[in-house]
Design a binder for these strands. Structure first.
Lengths: 213, 213
DNA sequence: ATAATTCTTGAACAGTGTTCATTTCCTGCT
DNA sequence: AGCAGGAAATGAACACTGTTCAAGAATTAT
């Protein structure tokens, strides 16, 4: 009759995601989870080692969904036979923007969480997803006949996607009205357009610059 | 004999900045500040309304210094008669990278803080500094003879700098060894190079794309 | 010198995350 | 059915937050 251990964990994660989305990381409280799930505080700690693990689990679910969203957007374009590099990158960026807008509270929490545990050991699910996204972008770039070897194409993919990420996240800091959303998309369009044009004209690796001190 | 009110505030801010840089936002505790400053907890709240105000004050100092650093880097290049757009943007980016590397703990705290208060009212010091940086970038872009009116140049400046920001911050999430620092700089070089080349070849505003649903 | 004002203090309060002895529940056996 | 044994749930208790505020100390004005 009662819920399975895994079902209860699921319920806790759904509640936790809602709390994060409403009030950010500070709103994820053990007692609130317990109350809303109809269990005691201690039981929460029976299911998860601590609140960090709850937060991490929520993040993983979000990241999986983002990965699925991005891949679906790419697959759609493949199905429609779209090969234009600019179009395809813009489609991925649009999926990313939509995803961030759909999770206004929890996505900043993902970033903050991953920044906090930055000094900790090896790669985790976040890095894995990022690598997967980079690979997809690199695959799209391969379709364009730029003069790039694999290493440089990988670097270009990371650069392009980190830039999209920067535009989307730093844009969402400011007043969150609809004009801001337009501004973000204009910036993404400009970035992708200029980036592709720049790669076409081979300006990418012309100079070997001295690194700053 | 004893410290002035303003001197004590200064002392508190120095201590607070050190705490933030060591352990991030979670490490900024009223009792720790009081102990290290040689005053009582209550006195901290006499100088500042709450810990948020302490954090905000620390951020303002950091942002002022970043502004000064960026402006100094630009002034240096002006003095040397450098007019090349790519060089000048790279110099600014280098200053930014150096600044972030010099404040590994407190810079993420600035970002997190400003993201948290994103739903609050009007523009603050952070937005003001960002606008100032954008203006500087736009000024540099004006020197290159791209075919851009003021609005489009402003958009290009915001796009370029948000991209640099994205590369620097998302780069600093990963393992913070020196290879990562190299990777970041390679990405910045690629971005700036491609961006400038792209603007030169007028690919910036060629397409008026449909926004995603 | 005395009154008035201001500043400083740290105990106290309301919340946190987390633990763990106790109780409750279920399962398998006789 | 009755009963041991173990597993799971409980919530009071602990240590630690930010913040307040009545009381005392110190400074200034008269």
């Amino acid at each position: 009759m009662a819920l399975d251990k895994e079902e209860m964990s699921e319920k806790v994660l759904v509640i936790a995601e809602a709390l994060l989305n409403e009030g950010g990381a500070d709103n994820l409280k053990a007692r609130t989870i317990a109350e809303q799930a109809g269990i005691s505080v201690g039981s929460v700690y029976n299911l998860f080692a601590d609140l960090d693990e709850v937060h991490r689990a929520v993040n993983m679910r979000l990241l999986d969904r983002l990965g699925a969203t991005g891949l679906a957007a790419m697959a759609d374009l493949e199905g429609q036979g779209v090969t234009d590099v600019r179009h395809r990158i813009l489609a991925m960026a649009a999926a990313y923007v939509r995803f961030v807008e759909a999770h206004p509270g929890s996505w900043p929490a993902v970033l903050a969480f991953n920044r906090r545990r930055a000094t900790r050991p090896g790669p985790d699910a976040y890095d894995a997803l990022l690598d997967a996204l980079f690979d997809i972008v690199a695959g799209v770039l391969k379709a364009g006949d730029f003069d790039l070897d694999d290493d440089r194409r990988a670097l270009a993919a990371r650069t392009l996607w980190s830039s999209v990420h920067g535009i989307v996240t730093s844009g969402y800091v400011a007043n969150s009205n609809s004009r801001q959303a337009e501004e973000i998309w204009h910036q993404v369009e400009l970035l992708v357009g200029v980036f592709v044009k720049g790669l076409e004209h081979g300006g990418a690796f012309a100079h070997a610059e001295t690194k700053p001190a």
